[in-house]
Simulated assay, not measured.
Amino acid sequence: MKTRILTLVIAASAAALPTTLLAADAAAGKAGWVKEYPQADGSPARSCATCHGTDLKQSGKHAKTGKVIEPMAPSVNPQRLSDEKKIAKWLLRNCKWTLGRECSAEEKADFLAYIKTQ
């Protein structure tokens, strides 16, 4: 499973990875998922859970648009984590919107490892 996650992160990451392989940490991914990140524009702090929730087997709802977000857990939504281009697109977009910056390769690996445990 770690090899597949690392493959997805390598494919999804626009930044060059360090020459050493990253060890994906689902516990770190879970902690990052619920961590609230202050927003530069003064709007309320956000976390991944703000839109996706803490139970990844349930649907979420986008905080700004109200659009329903299908469950993140591959166990109930097999399409999740199945398309490397979509993974790259959504990690880039969501990291920028939530964290205010691109996620590091290690953060991406950790988030993916956490999501895959659900």
Rank of each mutant, 00 (worst) to 15 (best):
C103H: 04
Y114H: 13
G53I: 05
W90N: 15
P78V: 08
L21M: 11
Q58A: 13
L112V: 13
A113Y: 00
G53N: 07
K35T: 15
M1F: 07
P18S: 08
C48A: 10
K30R: 15
T117N: 08
L17D: 05
A105Y: 01
P18Q: 05
I10D: 10
E102Q: 12
P74E: 12
A88F: 09
I69G: 06
A11L: 12
T117H: 07
P38L: 06
F111T: 00
L21S: 12
M72R: 11
D83W: 05
Q39C: 06
I10G: 12
A23G: 00
L56R: 05
G60M: 05
R101K: 15
A14M: 08
E36N: 14
A109I: 09
E84M: 07
A15K: 08
I10N: 12
K86P: 01
C95R: 01
R46T: 04
D55C: 07
T3P: 02
I5D: 04
A27E: 14
G29T: 10
V68H: 04
K2A: 10
A88H: 05
G29M: 05
C103A: 15
D110I: 06
D55E: 13
G53L: 03
T98K: 09
A12D: 04
T50W: 10
E107N: 06
E84T: 14
E102D: 15
K85G: 00
T7I: 00
P38W: 08
L22E: 06
R46I: 03
H52C: 07
R101W: 01
K64H: 08
A40R: 14
A24M: 05
Q39R: 15
V34S: 13
C103P: 12
L6W: 06
I87W: 04
Q79M: 09
A24H: 07
R101N: 05
E70Y: 03
M1Q: 10
D25C: 01
A27W: 02
Q58I: 00
P74F: 05
K116N: 14
I10A: 13
Y37G: 02
K61T: 13
E107H: 05
K64Q: 13
L56F: 06
K67F: 07
E106D: 14
A63N: 12
E36W: 03
S104A: 04
A109R: 02
P71R: 03
S104N: 04
K67W: 04
T20A: 13
A105T: 03
D25R: 02
E84A: 15
K67M: 12
I87L: 04
Q39G: 06
D83F: 07
A63L: 08
Y37D: 08
Y37T: 11
R101G: 00
G100A: 13
Q118W: 12
D55W: 04
Y37S: 15
K89Y: 14
N94R: 11
D110E: 09
T98P: 05
A12I: 10
S59D: 12
K85N: 02
A26T: 00
K85W: 00
F111G: 01
L6I: 14
L22D: 05
P38Q: 08
